[in-house]
């Protein structure tokens, strides 16, 4: 009984070494995300685990002030309206330090969510500890997760920020549709222009 245990330990070590070499600083597609607990604009604390009937999530790092986030605001609302009933609700997270951009303060988030009637949770990463785990580096930056919180898509919402009518590829929609069919999203990673995330000055 001793050697199988030893082999297991060795395997575990090998696995740790292998995965450590694979950019350990933030999640990549295929990684399982840890749950978080962040304050929503309605005052409650929200975690993935609160969504007991969800099949997955459309997680979007976004904010009030960024013109690119504003260009996508309507489309993020539409994503939630289309997919929350199919088990993929939108969770939006504002990662910005309001000392740098006052427009992204919690109070301003509450106002914006109200005036634009956000149908989804709009959370504040006030300690700026969640967005680095995901490797979010701009707003908006989208992540599609499956039921097990495994990240299945990272990137842009679609391929035309300025003109919604001219969109050819709806990356997030395609990813969710693939997961609904039990298929692997393709592409599972795209890039997009956005605003930098405003990190607290030390």
């Amino acid at each position: 009984m001793k050697s199988p245990a030893r082999i297991l330990v060795l395997l575990a070590c090998a696995f740790l070494l292998f995965s450590a070499g694979d950019d350990p600083s933030h999640y990549v597609v295929g990684d399982r995300a840890e749950d978080f607990s962040l304050r929503n604009v309605d005052g409650s604390m929200v975690s993935f685990s609160d969504y007991t009937s969800a099949k997955g999530f459309i997680l979007v790092f976004t904010c009030n002030h960024c013109p690119y986030a504003q260009l996508y605001e309507r489309r993020i609302i539409e994503l939630h309206n289309k997919y929350s009933s199919k088990g993929y609700p939108v969770i939006a997270i504002n990662p910005n330090d309001p000392k740098i951009v006052p427009e992204d303060s919690f109070d301003e988030m509450v106002k914006r969510a109200k005036s634009k009637r956000y149908p989804f949770a709009y959370l504040f990463d006030s300690t700026q500890t969640v967005y680095p785990l995901f490797g979010a580096n701009r707003t908006p930056h989208a992540f599609v997760l499956d039921k097990n919180l495994v990240i299945r898509y990272i990137g842009a919402i679609d391929d035309n920020p300025e003109t919604p009518a001219a969109v050819k590829r709806r990356y997030v929609e395609n990813a969710v549709e693939s997961l609904l069919r039990d298929e692997r999203p393709d592409p599972d990673f795209t890039r997009a222009i956005g605003c930098t995330i405003k990190r607290k000055r030390k």
Partner: peptide, 22 residues
């Protein structure tokens, strides 16, 4: 530059660029 298909051209600017400006 008004090319909207940024996923296509961002890596052609630099492989490491995440897409945020500046």
């Amino acid at each position: 530059l008004s090319d909207q298909d940024a996923d296509n051209w961002i890596p052609r600017v630099h492989e490491d660029w995440g897409g945020a400006i500046p």
